[in-house]
């Protein structure tokens, strides 16, 4: 695997919906064959970018890409809603824990769930739950 992947791994890259880069063109857009969803990143690409970050001695960035790959299948409005509920003084402890459960049950988003659980604990300790 060689970075930039867009140059050296071009042919193997697929979008979230499985489209190749060469299928995302002006002509295809004009024909109505490309939607906004076709121009989204896939879990696999986020894993690969995480690998690139790790090799560059940046495990924190890799961790972010790991959480991101778990979020690929979470619908936009659900992500926005979860983010808002994770803000201070928005949720009860039970609501945050339930959100963590949702992340695991519905999206196998273990790393995201872990972050939310840690938040639930420290939010309680620091008094920023509802």
């Amino acid at each position: 695997m060689r970075y930039p992947l867009g140059e050296y791994e071009k042919d193997s890259i697929r979008s979230k919906t499985g489209k190749k880069l060469s299928q995302i063109t002006l002509d295809e857009i004009k024909r109505g064959n490309v939607t906004a969803d076709d121009i989204k990143i896939s879990k696999e690409m986020l894993h690969k970018q995480g690998q690139v970050a790790k090799e560059a001695d940046n495990p924190e960035l890799a961790g972010n890409f790991e959480r991101a790959s778990e979020m690929v299948d979470i619908p936009d409005e659900v992500i926005l809603d979860m983010y808002n509920r994770l803000r201070p003084n928005r949720s009860t402890k039970l609501e945050l824990v339930t959100m963590a459960k949702e992340l695991i049950d519905n999206y196998q988003a273990v790393n995201c769930a872990k972050l939310v659980m840690e938040a639930a604990e420290i939010y309680e300790k620091r008094g920023i739950l509802l």
Partner: peptide
């Protein structure tokens, strides 16, 4: 994690 969630 699941265990912890269930407990809480």
């Amino acid at each position: 994690l699941i265990e912890q969630i269930a407990k809480i």
